[in-house]
Design a binder for these strands. Structure first.
Lengths: 239, 239
DNA sequence: CGACACCTTGAAGAGGTTCAAGAAATGTGG
DNA sequence: CCACATTTCTTGAACCTCTTCAAGGTGTCG
């Protein structure tokens, strides 16, 4: 294709530690380069894939930010996750060989396209890769478990606190601040993800500011008191 | 060990179609028998595994009924699923190599113990098994997605209707009635699963009886009007 | 600079929770 | 096998959190 295509290589990707090739030998990582067929750019607002489309590949995010969401026949929406650099999308498509959600870019993004057939083939030969694929899928199951806990048991303040802390922690793992960030999604998206209405999200942000947990300037969030914010998740008004 | 051990064999298990060996040749299914190290009985109320225990094996349910649940430090509980014959438990343990939930038998049960190392080894050789393991994990991700939708968007009646229909459908896939069943779990368990209080579950059951959707005698449920029950899930009081 | 999307805030309302009491079923030990 | 204890389920009434409806403010992008 173009010059971009040539540079494709896990072996010199700075997201190595967050993406597929963890714990592999130098040799194995180089073989892994075969997995990435090519890269694909997705513009803000566009879909990487849609529900119902044939599943062929997994996608690793190189840059950008995505949401994955389900919609029911009667139009209700549920965001199942927000994905950032180094994270894998498309796992839900394996079961039926059709994608089961929409993946929408919340900012201009670039992903590595990994044809699943190749992933499977190579993970038969590289046991470290096989194990890693299993772990990634299992981690997704565990992540969703904790969201079930959030949606089933937590009140609005706890949900939003958990959400903010999770984003900050993932951002920190990527070398950015652990106390400050720019949200890529709207209040409405946050609400859809957390099972709340956007007004509730907005009100809860305001309350967090009043209570001195955070500072908010539009989508810019700064944690002022990390302890008190964390404490919100753990103490549900004991009675 | 005992006679039980000798009979262990996927090749003559009547749950074959629901469990691991789908789409394998006769030959491959026989090799699969190696996967099942042994069987294990679990008494009603006992745990197959606990959160934090080292993960070694997946478990396929031969008989009985389980719940898997998470508990937070402050004692709140979330049931992440109910599992019946032919279903696989333990997938959440792969990621950290420790179990991430408790698996509790809701009636006397027997499971096939499948050491995960053996599963991985064999799925490197049998591509049909590899693919099947991937599909099982993906299916679990999809299942949890739909529970997120349920917890994030549905009201009590819709949740309970979806829950009942799901159980009936799975029971039907196992050759039992698609309109009648005996619930293995308490109202409280249903509530914890659906993100509702047990009183709400009980009230909603009563309402379903009043509205002529079902008949309830304790844990025995009989669907009188399948259409109207299904319709509850789809029409959220349009306004 | 104006249109549009996004966010905030208030007030009223609804769905589900909490607290409480009693009924029905289940299990246990004498 | 029955009596009693225990668990499970049902139902009512008051309450609370979040939602709904509504209006106005703020920021952004062509």
């Amino acid at each position: 294709m173009n010059l971009q295509t040539i540079k494709v290589a896990c072996s010199n990707c700075n997201l190595r530690e967050l993406c597929l090739p963890v714990g592999l030998s130098r040799d194995e990582v180089e073989r892994l380069d075969q997995v990435v067929a090519n890269r694909r750019k997705v513009k803000k607002g566009d879909a990487l894939f849609h529900t119902g489309e044939a599943f062929t590949s997994l996608y690793a995010i190189r840059t950008g930010f995505f949401k994955t969401c389900l919609t029911t026949d009667d139009g209700r929406e549920q965001i199942t996750g927000f994905q950032m650099a180094g994270e894998i999308m498309g796992l839900d498509g394996i079961s039926t060989e059709r994608h089961n959600c929409d993946a929408i870019a919340l900012e201009d993004a670039e992903v590595c396209v990994m044809p699943f057939g190749v992933v499977e083939e190579l993970s038969r030969e590289i046991t470290g890769l096989q194990r890693h694929v299993h772990k990634i899928m299992s981690r997704e199951i565990v992540r969703e478990n904790s969201i079930m806990m959030l949606l089933g048991n937590m009140r609005a303040e706890e949900r939003l606190a958990a959400f903010l802390l999770n984003l900050l922690q993932r951002q920190q793992a990527r070398g950015f601040s652990g106390t400050e960030m720019v949200l890529r999604m709207s209040r409405e998206d946050i609400g859809v993800y957390l099972g709340l209405k956007l007004e509730t999200v907005s009100r809860t942000f305001s309350k967090f500011v009043d209570d001195g947990h955070i500072e908010v300037k539009q989508r810019h969030i700064k944690v002022v008191n990390l302890e008190s914010l964390s404490a919100l998740m753990k103490q549900p008004e004991c009675h």
